[in-house]
Design a protein around this nucleic acid. Sequence first.
RNA 1: CGGGGCUUAGCGCAGUGGUAGCGCAUCUGUUUUGGGAGCAGAGGGUCGUGAGUUCGAAUCCCACAGCCCCGACCA
Length: 585
Amino acid sequence: MLLSKLVGRTVKETPRDAELVSHKFLLRGGFIRQYSAGVYGLLPLAQRSIAKIESICRDEMNRVEGQEVKMPCLGTKELWDESGRYSAIGKDMFRLVDRNEKPMVLCMTHEEPVVFFARTELTSYRQLPAMMYQIQTKFRDEPRPRGGLVRLREFTMKDAYSFHSSEEDLQKYYWRAHEAYLRFFKRTGCRNFVSVMSDNGMFGGKFSHEFMMLVPSGEDTLITCSKCSYKANQEVATSPFKNTKSAELKLQSVDTPNIKTIADLANSLKIDPSQTCKAVMFQTKEQELVIAFVRGDLDVVEQKLKGILQKELIPAKDSVIEAAGAVSGSTGPIGLNLSKCWVVLDSSVLASSNLAVGANKDGVHLMNFNAERDFLSTLNDWQKQRVKTGDLAAARAGDPCPECGEALQETRGIEIGNIFHLGTRYSQSMNCTFLDQSGLAQNHVMGCYGIGITRLLPAIIEESHDERGPVLPITVSPFDVHICVLNKKEGHTEQKALETYEALRNAGVEVLLDDRDEKPGSQFADADLIGIPLRVIFSPRNLSENKVEFKYRDNRSPAQMVATSDIISFIKKTVSEEYARYKID
RNA sequence: CGGGGCUUAGCGCAGUGGUAGCGCAUCUGUUUUGGGAGCAGAGGGUCGUGAGUUCGAAUCCCACAGCCCCGACCA
């Protein structure tokens, strides 16, 4: 490709709207352009790079017996009603009506369409296990798209679905898929990434892993242990915390005028926030209040709360709070109207003694609250059904590891892939069965496996760049080699460069040639901004000695001079060595 | 959905009541050439939209929209 003809120009100034380095460089390098919030077009450089990511992905999916399919983006309400997700998913799903007023959706994931396939195609145990995958556009009406290609409303995802005759078979395959993912990320040049335990969210199923690129700009918080192998998304990370049990003191009321926050409460009572109990309130769609109680210094993880209650939660409205007898700023477990609310106590509250807690009276708190003595033991059988206990709190840096007790660490990550145990969540609800060896109809046991294809490019750039631009791994670079031609009009410089360009192309090397009559500085700056890993520089100065210059984008070694007679074989060899760095046997 | 910010040429910005400018980019010519050049010239804007105030609005008032950031939310 000649740079003068490439669609997509480089830009000197950083676009105002870009925050992340990957976003800045993708815009400045002429890879992408924005159409609207969370909707981008890929210019040739990005399209070529993404196509390479897709190709590696196909290869790895095929290696684990995946069969590529293509399912529609456009779905019907009927199909999504079968799983119950047409109503379960809220505004994140794009919805529309066709010309006959029939409700349609733009698919944000494809469990329903793939079960539609499986229902008619996978009807015998002899066909199992089977895995179908596709590389397809997904639509999600994200509340807040951000970070260029990181969080989009329209994006490309590789999604795969496996079907099994048993739980054991699924688990075996699950770990094969896990291995395939590790291979894929290594081949695409990802370096610092991990798989962590994660939340299953609205997918259902029992367990899941997220593959996370560890970069400071990541959206997710990960909790890891430096001593053992414990790694989890903060959404599911747990800790035994450091709780103190002591002799139970007498419950007593204390006036706390104008005290609404844990910080104020701890200050006025001259105690540590960990000696208080905090209420965090949500509500269900049925207008029932949900109150989570955690130790005052900890935070509630909403996903955990949803998991315990198996309900969708939204922020609580004042009317719902009042109806349950809770008082904002002084909410406590004692004296609530349990017919109007659900109460969930975090383990940290049960494991602590003599906490300060709201009295459900404005300006009044209770001291020396002990959950078992003052609350749980006072409940009748019906009330007990409205009260749950469990793990709600977010583990933080410094809290003890649940596996080995070592102090946990926090890091940030970008989610680049995930794998989910789905079980029979979809095969049951959508009546998808196969006949087993004894002729009995059984629900397929399913797993699903996603990779954010479009997101991988910015994720790679987040971890692989310098102040001048991206440093792309050759496996995902739009071209293998970037040729700069300085002072092209002087002597035979341009002609020599073009000859080399043609010869390399004929040898199967993908080359971008800067044939513009630009200043050297300008050419180098653009080459850095595009990020191709190998660079060749033609100039009259070097050609006069029958040499050309070669350098790596990452400056791993000093630039070297290569005889013009050797340049083709040198580049071919270097390109294949470069690819070999990302090869896995 | 809450809080904040922004919207003027392709990009980045200036312009507090008198009818629009700068830098970069683009085009022409010319001189240059190893880390984002110089000179000369040219083209390019219903100033986000709508409705007001005014003799006159990019500028003042009102409403709306779009975009970005923080939070909420999120396979």
